[in-house]
Design a protein around this nucleic acid. Sequence first.
DNA 1: TGTACATCAGTGAACGCGCGTTCACTGATGTAC
DNA 2: TGTACATCAGTGAACGCGCGTTCACTGATGTAC
Lengths: 217, 217
Amino acid sequence: MTAVVRSRSPRGEGDRLREEILAATQRLLMETGSAEAVSIRAVARAVGVTSPAIYRHFEDKDRLLLEACREKFQDLQVALEAAEPQKVPVGERMLVMGRSYIDFALENPESYRIMFMTRFDMSAQHFAEEMMGDRCFMILLDSVTDLIDAGLVRPELADKGALHVGGLFWASIHGLASLLIAKPGLPWPDREQLITDLLHATVRGIQVAPKPSRRRS
Amino acid sequence: MTAVVRSRSPRGEGDRLREEILAATQRLLMETGSAEAVSIRAVARAVGVTSPAIYRHFEDKDRLLLEACREKFQDLQVALEAAEPQKVPVGERMLVMGRSYIDFALENPESYRIMFMTRFDMSAQHFAEEMMGDRCFMILLDSVTDLIDAGLVRPELADKGALHVGGLFWASIHGLASLLIAKPGLPWPDREQLITDLLHATVRGIQVAPKPSRRRS
DNA sequence: TGTACATCAGTGAACGCGCGTTCACTGATGTAC
DNA sequence: TGTACATCAGTGAACGCGCGTTCACTGATGTAC
């Protein structure tokens, strides 16, 4: 944008440029929507620095992209945690958490694409999965476990464990989020309704059927 | 692979090379899993021809990728149609069709990625959506319509139309297919069970609850 | 049947490009004396 | 307070690469006579 005149960072503050590089990388990822389209040179250009300067802060391109994504995984984690405080009753957590997840995806479409819709370069993939498994999926898994413990999951699914049930749930919400991102040009009917209905249908398919006639608590 | 010695196609048979180019493009797409990674030069190399020869058969790179995908959409269409003859009872069509869809995705992971997990270059996107909307989604839509007509869809969903219900179903099955493709390294529990359970949970979330006590047909 | 020729599928060389990465360097900054 | 100097954040030029695309061409093939 505006050609900012950079002054060199003082001795101890190399981190300033590092942060600017990460921010620019995330911005470019969002604008282009493709890890391959984001070049070291473009990032350097965006920051207002020459490309070799990047290498003082990041080992290579993979590393830079990896770090940029790590920050986004943290953002997702915060979104999921905020949506799942102990305040939300166990029976509604999946709905609330699913909603947060889809909102995150739609608010960060290009980051989401890179995080969940592409395959990373091998070494980087391991890291990404580490990051993801480490926290975000664990948050989901904890909720599922609580749901199972509360006896709210259909027994034939609950028997297969929280990982299995969590996978089903994740698949559904990821499916809608990723389709909306990948095919924005399709004649989607009312988006809000679609999200709400998908969440309810998914939960309905996983949780035990309410038994209105037998006992009504 | 083997360095096939090509003889030039006789006058009228330019289509022979054209078909070979398309086949090689699809093969490369499958191997690399990225439209950007498939280069005109690599395709030419694979076919055993120089790169300018490609241009006698395809206007440019976009066009080549587009044609390659069009063929895959036809394959998907065949898969969906084979799974949905008039033999399958209406109440089971979603299960059978969903299974075919996921099987297609897992058997053609890299094509599937390009067809449904990436955003095409603008002009190409329109074509891809045309192709897709034109047939594959219509097949799904017809089944949903039949399901609604049979009174098997929960009324609050049926009211919103076949497009809405079809979108929900597509989102779910696409979600599982695309996650399995994008994150093959994750510790997925039993894949077969996951697919089966997802299909059943999705259908359960969309169709009317069976009413065993009131009336049993 | 034999020959000259037009056709056109495919070639080979070249273009300009942006890429990731390396290297020796520069010159403002903070510090030691 | 003043000066010499080591540090090190960032520079500028260059490397080799593969890319999409163009251009004038070649030479086997089918056809007209």
